[in-house]
Amino acid sequence: MSQLKKHFPILRGVFGAAKGTVKAVDEVSFTIRKGETLGLVGESGCGKTTVGRCIVRAYPITGGQMLYQTRDNEFIDLAAVPEKELAPFRRDIRLIFQDPYSSLNPRMTIFELVSEVLRVNKLCSRDEMQSRVEDLLKRVGLRPEYMQRYPHAFSGGERQRIGIARALITNPRLVVCDEAVSALDVSIRAQTLNLLESLQADFDLTYLFISHDLSVIRYICDRIVVMYVGKVVEVANALDLYMTPRHPYTEALLSSVPIADPVGRETRRRIYLQGEVADPSHPPTGCYFHPRCKYAQDRCKTETPDLRRLNGHHSVACHFAEKLELKGVIYD
């Protein structure tokens, strides 16, 4: 995607007149490579979920491009595709929701939930539909005889597996995982992450994995995009970003990652950012992060840094990235 924007109007008064806009996503650019898992991280409210929902076109796009390479190797700008022509792309690009409880209709059976997209789009016959649902439930670790049960009969981890099956029923190419494990118990998260990795290999999937949990992101992602107040501030391979962050905001995020080693905890310096997250309806001038950055200089207050490549696949939006010596996280 290139220069993607999603602005929400602020409506006030009896007639709902627009009094301003919230720049939830502001000129975001990055690439998702075929077969990889790209992590999208940042604080709550930074716009990462909005990016995911723009990709699946749950939201209309304010500006920018989303170039998608089809199965015929043609490039289509998803941001410009009319709503009535989106059905084929929505079969290829699917979404796994965060909450396994509210995302499943309690009045529908598991068979109805998983097969609904097949029925609505008339993609196969009833018999074939039943066969596909049975096979997919087995692949996600559920028994086919559970098809006629309702969501209340399942645990949170099982419900999320149902959500995964629903996302994969159309044989998609890209799956947006929006905080897919954050609502699960810690003991269930590793199982779900292992399942997602296994399904990625079996179905040749590409993932956009949205999360605020940096430990989860490190475990499953190949590359990572860091967002702050609607903008991308750093993009790098997972190992490079964790060991050698180049943006002060990334350094602060990494300092909050829990370390199991007691000795490591004692020798590590936690970074506490001063002030509040910038208001996306009235962002500061220059670099959005400068009011909270201890490295900020006068240039940061007036000039917005471009996202530029430093070396290899490491890109950063900071005027002084080459001069800063930032600390990362070293894992065994």
Rank of each mutant, 00 (worst) to 15 (best):
G141W: 09
K294N: 14
A296Q: 05
K48R: 10
V51S: 02
A260N: 12
A87V: 15
K5C: 12
H7L: 06
D261C: 13
D178P: 01
I259M: 12
Y68V: 02
S182T: 11
A17L: 14
N105T: 11
D213N: 14
V120F: 12
Y68E: 02
V175P: 01
I55G: 01
V229G: 00
S102F: 06
G13L: 10
D135N: 15
I32G: 06
L118Q: 10
P305V: 05
E128V: 07
T170W: 00
P88S: 13
Y331M: 09
K327W: 04
P248E: 08
R126E: 14
E197Y: 05
A24V: 03
E27R: 11
N194Y: 12
G39L: 03
V81C: 02
E276G: 05
T31C: 03
V277S: 09
L239N: 13
V133F: 06
T206W: 04
G16T: 09
L326Y: 11
Q98E: 11
F30C: 04
I110N: 04
G45H: 09
I55D: 00
V51L: 07
C177W: 02
S255G: 11
P245R: 11
L254V: 10
Y146F: 14
Q191C: 05
Y146H: 13
L40Q: 03
T244M: 12
G275K: 08
L168C: 01
I217N: 07
I96S: 07
M147E: 10
G47I: 01
S102D: 07
E322Q: 14
G286K: 07
D77W: 08
L174Y: 09
M227P: 03
M129S: 13
D306V: 10
R139K: 15
P258D: 06
R143A: 13
L326R: 07
K301D: 03
S2P: 02
E36S: 15
G35S: 13
D92E: 15
T302G: 01
E179Y: 02
E325M: 04
Q160A: 10
R143P: 03
N121Y: 15
V25E: 00
Q3K: 14
P284M: 05
P82Q: 12
A238C: 15
Q3R: 14
T109N: 04
